[in-house]
């Protein structure tokens, strides 16, 4: 447990000290909110949620890429793969929640007649999905440029797809749109439950995939045998 917490703490410390990154993390969702502010409030909420998702997954992507060279030596220092990816994910989730709080307050003060609990749940789902998504891309593509382009593609497709199409349900952040509909348009509870279920399944799938990728990359190699110390 101590190892998990230590990795999470160091991930947070590292990200929080990147002031420029923090500023941009906040700027991205804010920009998304402001651009859509004059239109229907649902549009600005959905854009805000996508902005948070994008910001957190980008932070996760870069944190994963930056740690790539360090992780093998931490493995030798006694960490197991799950300490490293779970610890990092915990740190990113904490950062995502911290980034979401001011935007939740923004919706409370700047928009009326919303189900605010729904907004909070949608933000939680965004953060839950975004951290493993960024880590997954970072683990799959070692070069930051390639990872960034793939993430950009995923988010762009998410924005452009018709949300009612079946293809949209395959996108990682479909859940936030469903829950936002429940929160903004006061639709039936099915939207909320579908959204939460989608987020849970996507998060679990990505977590398992991240675990697999880290497990393979940081595995104990078969040529290395450990003899007892005499």
């Amino acid at each position: 447990m101590n190892r998990l917490v230590t990795v999470a703490e160091m991930t947070l410390r590292e990200l929080v000290r990147r002031r420029g990154v923090l500023l941009l993390l906040l700027l991205m969702p804010l920009t998304f909110w402001l651009i859509r502010r004059d239109s229907h409030v649902g549009q600005s909420v959905r854009a805000l949620l996508l902005g948070i998702s994008w910001a957190v997954s980008t932070a996760a992507l870069f944190a994963t890429s930056a740690a790539r060279e360090l992780e093998p030596r931490l493995r030798l220092a006694g960490y197991r793969p799950h300490h490293l990816y779970l610890g990092r994910m915990l740190g990113l989730w904490a950062l995502g929640l911290a980034v979401s709080v001011p935007f939740f307050l923004l919706t409370v003060f700047d928009a009326n007649n919303l189900r605010y609990a729904g907004i909070a749940v949608a933000m939680l789902c965004c953060v839950a999905v975004a951290a493993p998504l960024g880590m997954l891309i970072g683990a799959l593509l070692p070069r930051e440029m390639e990872g960034t382009l793939l993430l950009l593609t995923v988010v762009a497709v998410q924005m452009l797809l018709d949300p009612t199409s079946s293809a949209a349900k395959l996108m990682p952040f479909w859940s936030s749109r469903e829950i936002a509909s429940w929160a903004v348009d006061h639709t039936d509870d099915g939207y909320l439950s579908r959204g939460v279920l989608h987020a849970a399944v996507v998060t679990a799938l990505m977590l398992v995939t991240v675990a697999g990728l880290f497990g393979v990359r940081l595995r104990r190699r078969r040529h290395l045998r450990h003899a007892p110390l005499v």
């Binding site: 030798l76 190699r221 040529h223 290395l224 045998r225 450990h226 003899a227 007892p228 110390l229 005499v230």
Partner: peptide
Amino acid sequence: AGLISPDAGEVTVA
């Protein structure tokens, strides 16, 4: 260090 695999050979560490 066991960070990459060789095509042949082995390493024993105590």
